[in-house]
Each structure stands twice: as structure tokens, then as C-alpha cells.
Write a protein that binds this DNA or RNA. Structure first.
Length: 596
DNA sequence: GCCGTTTTCGGCCCGACTGTTTTCAGTCG
């Protein structure tokens, strides 16, 4: 459940990113400044509740869906926001107007060095950083490494030789370290580990919790909840797992290890009567949990990983639903637990009926070996049928993408004949004729209108010039969307997780254009893409744009990517009605017709 | 520094594990 610092990747911030650093950029800046102020105050031994006030405020601002600059322009009183009083409202205004903060400038002057970097080292918190700064004059990673090598760190009160060595290791490991893992990599680690834990016979119930269960686009570590009356046996089996590289800690109910693939795993064992509470606790997010505990406290209750307690007596804990019920709430799907409005929605009976796997009727982005896919048209259609799909669209690449052996007009015509023949045979999912057409640098499409007009749908995507300035990228996409045959904007941000940054454009304008044209946006389910991801889905919904959850399958096994795309859609609060490919074939055709 | 269906003062989310302390602070999730 380790979060990237303490702040959820907030809707406002990601929309800011998407919009090319205009909409919401103020929020992003305030969050960064407040978090840094909190770190610096913490190291200075300031009142811990003052520190917390800055962290709470940062989290609260991070969850806003509206830009603070816009709110100020409208005359909104920022002190009405949760966790914001007159003082912080003033600092927010200062940041919005000047881009900086006098307090931060002063704190930085008083506490020079890489405080935030030092704090990010495992085992190093504000108290120890304070000690290092004052007693050893350590301000940077280099200072720390030097002091540790000279064994000056281990001499400090509260430190010892083991801490010293761990810090030295941590500084060195920092250089070549993969922080987060894609979901498919995580899944390949999860499945055998869970099978191993089940086989020990001491686990009555177990589940992976944490960001993996919430369906975040990447996973930092694995959190596993286990119900057992024999915790020692479970811990023993866990430590003995064959893929374990090292043991970080091991107690009577809890242990942490690192797997061979460098992924950290945290295991927690509780009695079956507390399993639901442990699952809530380990699933997080941290922000969601903090909010839940505050709700509990407001009702005179206490919530921890063992249950909900009233005056020391347990009133819930066995399953998750009982925990939420004790707090007066319906059960909340893990994908929504980010403290971005789900608790208010739950309290008001306004939680969305999230789209489910069984709602998905087809897949509108599929490749074959005619372009860069591995399997033939027939094999892909058969596989789609086995996976229960009613229809699929074949969308091979267009010619410009030479490396993919993209289809020109005549090869597309030949593929069309093959599709007609397969459709005529019947008994298989209906095949729609499509193309993943390249959106060229100027926003034109890579095939003539006459060719595109003969297809059932046109999926457009950019595969080059990812780093255009935001205004040019926006214009490029707007021109493409305006094309008379344009149906679906595929993987709009063209990001590759951990490899390529999302490209920058004004997402609000682009989505508005999609809505006006009756066109759709794709939630691409390839685990390295996940594009659009949760926040984009939410923006689509608020913009009135339908989302196509797509596998972008390049081989018959890839239809499972639909599940990853579905998870992002659920994290984006989408219901079946918000998703294009939950429609029956006839409804789908009617919707597509509007764009053709 | 924020906040109030017990409160405008006195609270602020909760518990396990480690390394260091010889009774617990610091860190982490």
C-alpha cells in the first residue's frame, strides 16, 4: 500500500498534465509547495499538527476537480474547502498569484540541502534527518554516504551500526532502482505466490490488497491479507517462498520480503473475525482509510485493521461490507477508494453502478498478422468468440507505420473480402471492418476519405511526433477528430508506462470536440499503455464522451487486456451506459453511423 | 494550522516492527 509520497494522483493534476500545464497547474503547484513545507517543518521539529495541516491541505487540494485559479477568479472563498482555513487560503492565493511562497523560501534558506530526497530513503524520517543535519552537518545524499562510510552515523543516538549500513545501501540502491511495476508483471508475481500461500494449508482466506486491488495503473509493492488462526505457520510459509530474495522484517503477524524481481511484498495475518477490516486497511488508499477513520471517530467509534469498535467492543470486522455498514455506508468498490468523492457519494446513496466484465459485448481495437499482429484473422475471431465477445472490429495499421506493415487501400479491400466471407459462415462473433489509421503530424489521416468511408469504424491514433508543443498537439488532434469518418480516438496520450511520458495537449478541448462530433475515446487495455487511464475516463464522462474499452490485441491471448481497460474505466467511475462496447451490435452500429 | 450534533480550546488515525533504548522513539504502512 506504499503510495507515491502521500498524495493520490489527483484528477485535477492529471488533467493539468493533459491540458499542457494550464488547467489545474495552480493546484499542482500548491500541492507540491505544501508538501515541501510540511517536510521542512517536520525536519525542523515544528508542531506535528501544523505539519499535518499542510499535508491534509495538500491532499485536499490534490483531490479538487477544479482549478484553484479559476475558483479565485470566481470569488470562491477557499477557506470553505476541507482542511483549509484563513491562513492556508491566504497562502494558496499567494501561490496562485506569485507562483511561490514566502514561507517556503524562508524554510529552504534555513534548511538547505536535499531534505525531501533524504526523507524518501527507507528508515529515514524527519526526526533522524533533523539529527543528521544538526549533529553531522549532513544535507545531501553524498554527505550521508560519506558520513556512513566513516561510521559517524552509527554513533548518533537513535542510530546504530545496522541503521548505518541500511542507509548506505539505500543511497546506493537509489541509483538503479525500478520503483513501480506494470500490472502484468505484478500479476505474474502474484499468481504463483498466492498459490504457494494457499498450499500451506493455514490460510482460511487470503487476497492481494493495496494498489493492485484498487487497480492503479502501476503497482509499487504487493500487500497481502490473510485470515488464519495459525499466523506463525502462514508467516513461515511466506518466508520460505522460493522466489524470495531477502527478508526485510518478520514478526508474529506481519512480514515483508523482496522477491527475485525486486518487488516488495507485505503480508499481514489476522483472525478470520478481522479479515474484512484487514482487507479494508490493506487495500487503502491511505487517504481513503484516513477519511474512514475520521468518520468512525466522529461516530464515537474506532476503526483499525481488526475491526470497528464501540467503547472497546468489536461491532464489525469479518467482511468488508460490515465495516462500511458500521460507518453507515454501503460497500465501496476498491477501484473507487481514493478519497476523490466516493465517501460523500456513498453517504448520499450516489455511488455509480460500475461497469462490469459481463457488460462488455465486444472489442473495437484488434490487430491481425496483416499488420503487426501475430495471429491470423480467423484465429483472432475464434479467440474473441471463446472469450464470449459478440463482435469485434479488425483495426490493423495504416501504411504510414511502415514497421507494422500497415495496410494500403488494396490490402484493406482484400481483408474486407475475407471478413465478408467469415461473417457469411456465421456462428462466430460478428466482425466489423475498421482501421487504426495514423493521425499524421498535421492532423490529416493516413488513408483517403473514400477508403475510410467504406469501413464500419475508423480508429485514429498518433504514433509519431509525441513531443509537439501542447497547442500544436491540440490542433493536430482537433483536426483529426473533425474528419468526417473519425470514430474513436485511440490511446490519446500515447504514453508507455515507465518509458514514454504522456504527450501534452488540451484534453478539455479535445474531449469537448469528441463530444460535439459524437466520436468516442479509447481506454486502451494494454498494460503498458492504459490510455486513457482513470482520470481520462472521468473526464470523458463529464464531457459526455463514450469510452471504448479496448484490448488492442496483437495475439489471440491479448483479449484479456480488456480486463485492465475495464479496471481503469471503473476507477474513472464509468457505468455500463458510459461505455461504447457494452452496446448490442445494432445499438453500436447506430452510434457509429453518426460518425461515418 | 484546522475544526466543532459533547468543543472557540484542546483535540487532531492507528498499530506492528526495528533497533536501539533497557522501557521506547522512530518509521512505516
Amino acid at each position: 500500500m506504499k503510495e507515491p509520497s502521500d498524495k493520490p494522483e489527483a484528477l485535477a493534476n492529471e488533467i493539468a498534465l493533459a491540458a499542457g500545464s494550464r488547467v489545474g497547474a495552480t493546484n499542482e503547484r500548491i500541492v507540491a509547495i505544501f508538501d515541501e513545507i510540511a517536510d521542512l517543518l517536520d525536519v525542523e521539529n515544528a508542531n506535528p499538527f501544523r505539519v499535518r495541516a499542510y499535508r491534509n491541505a495538500a491532499r485536499s487540494i490534490g483531490a479538487l476537480t477544479e482549478d484553484v485559479g479559476a475558483m479565485l477568479a470566481r470569488g470562491t472563498d477557499l477557506a470553505t474547502l476541507p482542511g483549509i482555513g484563513t491562513d492556508l487560503a491566504g497562502k494558496m492565493r499567494e501561490i496562485a498569484e506569485t507562483g511561490g511562497s514566502e514561507l517556503l523560501t524562508r524554510l529552504r534558506r534555513e534548511t538547505p540541502g536535499q531534505i525531501q530526497m533524504l526523507l524518501s530513503l527507507p528508515g529515514l524520517g524527519p526526526r533522524r534527518v533533523h539529527r543528521l543535519e544538526h549533529d553531522l552537518n549532513v544535507h545531501t545524499m553524498e554527505d550521508l554516504a560519506a558520513a556512513a562510510r566513516e561510521h559517524r552515523v552509527g554513533m548518533l543516538p537513535g542510530f546504530g551500526p545496522r541503521t548505518e549500513q541500511r542507509l548506505l545501501d539505500a543511497v546506493q540502491a537509489r541509483l538503479d532502482r525500478h520503483r513501480r511495476f506494470s500490472l502484468d508483471v505484478a500479476m505474474r508475481a502474484v499468481d504463483p505466490l498466492m498459490a504457494h500461500l494457499r498450499s500451506c494449508g493455514a490460510a482460511q482466506d487470503l487476497a492481494v490488497a493495496g494498489s493492485y486491488r484498487r487497480g492503479r495503473d502501476t503497482v509499487g509493492d504487493l500487500d497481502i491479507a490473510v485470515a488464519s488462526g495459525r499466523p506463525q505457520a502462514v508467516i513461515h510459509a511466506f518466508l520460505a517462498y522460493g522466489q524470495t530474495r531477502s527478508v526485510i522484517s518478520a514478526g508474529s503477524t506481519r512480514a515483508s520480503t523482496v522477491l527475485m524481481n525486486d518487488m516488495q511484498v507485505d503480508l499481514r495475518v489476522v483472525p478470520a473475525s478481522s479479515y474484512g477490516a484487514a482487507l479494508v486497511y490493506l487495500t487503502g488508499s491511505k487517504a481513503h482509510n484516513v477519511a474512514l477513520r475520521k468518520m468512525a471517530q466522529a461516530r464515537g467509534l474506532k476503526l483499525n485493521e481488526y475491526g470497528v469498535f464501540r467503547q472497546g467492543r468489536k461491532i464489525a470486522g469479518r467482511d468488508e461490507a460490515s465495516i462500511y455498514e458500521a460507518l453507515g455506508l454501503p460497500w465501496i468498490a476498491p477501484e473507487l477508494r481514493e478519497d476523490t468523492g466516493e465517501l460523500d457519494a456513498a453517504r448520499d446513496g450516489k455511488l455509480p453502478h460500475l461497469v462490469e466484465a459481463r457488460d462488455i459485448q465486444g472489442d473495437l481495437h484488434v490487430h491481425t498478422n496483416e499488420s503487426d499482429g501475430v495471429d491470423s484473422l480467423e484465429a483472432m475471431v475464434m479467440a474473441a468468440g471463446r472469450d464470449g465477445l459478440q463482435y469485434l472490429a479488425i483495426t490493423d495499421h495504416s501504411p504510414r507505420l511502415g514497421i507494422t506493415h500497415g495496410l494500403n487501400a488494396s490490402r484493406l479491400a482484400a481483408q474486407s473480402d475475407a471478413i465478408d466471407a467469415l461473417n457469411a459462415k456465421g456462428g462466430l462473433p460478428t466482425i466489423l471492418k475498421g482501421i487504426e489509421v495514423d493521425i499524421l503530424e498535421d492532423g490529416s489521416l493516413d488513408l483517403p476519405d473514400a477508403v475510410l468511408g467504406r469501413l464500419d469504424l475508423v480508429v485514429g491514433a498518433i504514433h509519431s511526433h509525441f513531443d509537439l508543443p501542447a497547442d500544436k498537439q491540440t490542433a493536430r488532434l482537433l483536426r483529426a477528430i473533425d474528419h468526417p469518418h473519425f470514430s474513436i480516438l485511440a490511446h490519446p496520450f500515447a504514453r508507455l508506462i515507465g518509458e514514454r511520458e504522456a504527450c501534452r495537449f488540451d484534453a478539455v478541448r479535445v474531449f469537448r470536440a469528441l463530444a460535439e462530433r459524437g466520436a468516442c475515446v479509447e481506454a486502451n487495455g494494454q498494460p503498458r499503455r492504459l490510455d486513457v487511464w482513470d482520470t481520462g475516463c472521468r473526464l470523458a464522462k463529464s464531457s459526455g464522451v463514450q469510452v471504448s474499452i479496448a484490448s488492442d490485441a496483437h495475439r489471440s491471448a491479448d483479449f484479456r487486456n480488456l480486463a485492465w481497460g475495464l479496471t481503469q474505466a471503473r476507477r474513472g467511475w464509468l457505468e455500463a451506459a458510459d461505455v461504447l462496447n457494452t452496446r448490442s451490435l445494432s445499438r453500436l452500429r447506430a452510434i457509429l453511423k453518426k460518425t461515418m
